[in-house]
Amino acid sequence: MTSTLPGRLSFGALPQFATLAAVLLANWLVFPDFFDLRLQDGRLFGSVIDVLNRGAPVAILALGMTLVIATKGVDLSVGAVMAICGAVAATMAAADYSLVAILAAALAVGALCGLWNGFLVAVLDIQPIIATLILMVTGRGIAQLVTEGQIVTFTHEGLIAVAGSSALGLPMPVVIALVLGLALAALVRLTALGLLIESIGVNRTASTYAGVDSRSVLLATYMISGLTAAVAGVIAASDIRGADANNAGLWLELDAILAVVVGGTSLFGGRFSILLSLVGALVIQAMNTGILLSGYPPELNLIVKAVVIAAILVLQSPAAGRLFGFLRRS
């Protein structure tokens, strides 16, 4: 067996795609119109599109999170960074800056947040979970300062279009997530960055001793995570035409981590797959949308979610893999 990249996908990715298929099937069972699509004003409408559109912010967060987790780290601050960048974008939009200026500022702020996290982790050697917790906690405060405690709303056509327009019949956030995913996959796989990230994640000491510039790679990784959080934050603000410092991106860091884990990247670092993290994000959103469509009382939301996730993780566990292997052989 050779495990070239496509090879690795075709074998290792089976559980992820099977999970997605199972969740979609379940959605179809509780809501028979799940796969219905219709075209309206050159834009596709349907539950599947909702899954893609609503899943886009978590999918984008999961892109950066995948790289961070591959280095054996974690970025708890992405939800708060979303709030900060959304606040910056909304405040500037309310003051009628150009879209280019708004995006540049939001991305710069996101990169800065990532750099801060990276500095704590790579230079000061603070454990990632603690280092990023700092910004997770203070980030919403910073966002509050930007919005002065209010929900800043705007009517900026350009910024509204970021989440509100469509391309190729798909909502813009979906297109952004896809393009970013492809770009990031190209960045890590066409350069040596992916190998170096995996190497640091598996054994940072050995990698450093082999001459790998671990600090720079870690800094870059956290910065990418900050940037993806910025993009997600701008989309979230654009979506509701306002910035809600208290609630934007709330708990999404956990969904992003879950997406990466469901996508098969180990929290212990090492091998990662950006494509599969996207699949993981879709699984989570398909489940969320399915719950909303099912009409179950909301008290059951979290229970259903927990049961499904527990089932997914059990199915993907090495123990289950051994069991399946055994069943196949016998």
């Binding site: 170096l196 598996v202 050995a206 990698s207 082999a210 001459g211 790998v212």
Partner: peptide, 16 residues
Amino acid sequence: VGDLSVRENIALALQA
């Protein structure tokens, strides 16, 4: 670097 392949381990220093 345990989880990486023999090939990647051999190439690591040169790549770095």
